[in-house]
Design a protein around this nucleic acid. Structure first.
Lengths: 151, 151
DNA sequence: AACTAATATTTCGTATGCGAATTATTATAT
DNA sequence: ATATAATAATTCGCATACGAAATATTAGTT
């Protein structure tokens, strides 16, 4: 019974994640922004300045992945890289001047979208979702990975 | 308050999905199988024969994505493509002879892994997780996507 | 039967996403 | 002070992942 639960949980996670991404993609396609690109700008609108590694941590991504995302955001003029003067290993990412002026609108719009996830939900439903996800997170993080081999 | 929930939920989904994938990757790296490759073989061990589109539906992936996954599984000898005689548009995917013999071991091992997700959990926790995920799935699927534009 | 629409899959271009290796810089130890 | 370790970011190769377009085949229309 627990094994079936595992399979079901894995499948549900995949599905929910895919749906959320699809809706994000759809909602922001007019701005030519992909979901992770949108999240980076969203965070920069809040925090002004972030190290590449800080973005990686906040988004649960490898540094190499974020580096590529920043590459494309820089090429399309949304953000700028600024080498830190204090520690020259560090790269700070900031919104470019043009986007800087729109960051209020941006942050509002994204917040508005994220709000629609929970908009039709009762407080009890939101509670359910958050409780479930947090429980799962705890279960997964406590799990030590066992190497398996077939054959 | 609901808006913050949306942001939190999105972030949790990302995190949980990433963690689950990382553990799957880790658990099956000795077989040189990626998570989606592993899932395909797992399903074929159960169902014997699946159309490309059936795999896409079950895994919540685009046909084009699955086509590539099958390409690589075929190249490494795990599966074979078989053009249907009844409807020549259809491609059936089956386990190759070598893997066929191991499919019991395979299915067991995967089931075992998926079981470990829920192994340390109480029945109440599993209930919580499933309830939460199903609630979220319903909330997301009922959401009509509104196009948003910043600037 | 010929034309059109629908369906199944593949191909293509682009953007994630990862781990391993590399580069550049800073911190630490001897 | 120099060798070594640690840290931050990038580069590289590969495997997803998507949508749009192309291809092949079947179904439906007239």
């Amino acid at each position: 019974m627990k094994q079936e639960s595992g399979s079901e949980i894995a499948s549900l996670i995949r599905e929910v994640n895919a749906t959320l991404n699809a809706q994000l993609r759809e909602a922001f396609k007019e701005n030519d922004l992909t979901p992770p690109q949108m999240m980076v700008i969203f965070m920069l609108a809040e925090e002004k300045k972030l190290k590449v590694s800080e973005i990686s941590t906040k988004m649960n991504l490898a540094n190499s992945t974020v580096s590529g995302i920043i590459d494309r955001l820089e090429k399309s003029g949304y953000v700028k890289r600024m080498r830190s003067e204090v520690d020259r290993r560090v790269v700070h990412v900031v919104l470019s001047e043009q986007v800087e002026e729109l960051h209020h609108s941006f942050h509002e719009t994204v917040t508005q979208f994220l709000g629609t996830i929970a908009a039709d939900a009762t407080n009890e439903q939101i509670e359910q979702v958050l409780t479930g996800l947090n429980t799962l997170r705890t279960l997964l993080s406590g799990k030590k990975t066992k190497n398996l081999r077939c054959e």
